[in-house]
Design a protein around this nucleic acid. Sequence first.
DNA 1: CTACGATCTGGAGCGAGGTCTAGATCAAGT
DNA 2: ACTTGATCTAGACCTCGCTCCAGATCGTAG
Lengths: 140, 140
Amino acid sequence: MAGTETPAPPLSIGDVAEQTGLSVHALRFYEREGLLVGPVRRTSGGRRRYSAFDVDWLLICVKLRESGMPLADLKQFAELVRHGPGNEAERLQLLEAHRRRVDAQIQALEECRSVIAWKVGVYADHLARGKAEGLWDPTT
Amino acid sequence: MAGTETPAPPLSIGDVAEQTGLSVHALRFYEREGLLVGPVRRTSGGRRRYSAFDVDWLLICVKLRESGMPLADLKQFAELVRHGPGNEAERLQLLEAHRRRVDAQIQALEECRSVIAWKVGVYADHLARGKAEGLWDPTT
DNA sequence: CTACGATCTGGAGCGAGGTCTAGATCAAGT
DNA sequence: ACTTGATCTAGACCTCGCTCCAGATCGTAG
């Protein structure tokens, strides 16, 4: 099996931008900030060539960012991975801590949602029936 | 019934900060930015005196902010309320649009959560059994 | 009266997370 | 060879949402 797969052609920064949803600016910025696991390969002319590995990593980064992980934590994670095997427990900790934060966030959002939904209901009632209680009216 | 309730004593900025979780700085900032429905009352000496109405409004503001509503939208909503009755349909629209965004956000977070949970599983496996597939290892 | 803490105003400063610019270089099509 | 578009670097700049300061004033407890 190993060795028979197509080596997956290296991708330009533009391709990676498209695949990850990050801007090319953001990609260069992430690299400068040390958020990538390894140094990105370059062509003889100096253009970046991303591997499938890089893209995988970036896709996870996007999910972590989307769920509110600060760049600093992402960088820490990248550093752990960069330093190779032996620190998997730490990586696991980092991820689990984040998962807990995401859970908390979802809970908080659900609470917000219900408050908002209630207020929406108040307005909908008002519009359907005329006057309703619970509306803000600075004139009353 | 009406008229027999205790008029609820006006609150200082510090009290409101405590009740809403906003800092006194943030409260003054919100006011300057026009995020409050009406002008806040003042004592003869110029200190702010918040009404229960103000606090209610701020508590909703907090929920809206917590769920990612930008200050600009909050301001727009405040303006609608400020301009009094007659624009309830618009207010409803604003809130419903936001509720939809919150729903989308929850969905996105749940997706992130599952990606993270999967990765956590990969690491947990690795730690339990030794080698596992799917780990990032820059040395391989 | 004196202290002391809370509040006041206007404006500067900050951290996060990018975004954009300028001017040069590379690479591919014709 | 020439044109066009993607990329390169370094560094300036931007938005958002506060946060903090300086210096003055208020108001309450002793």
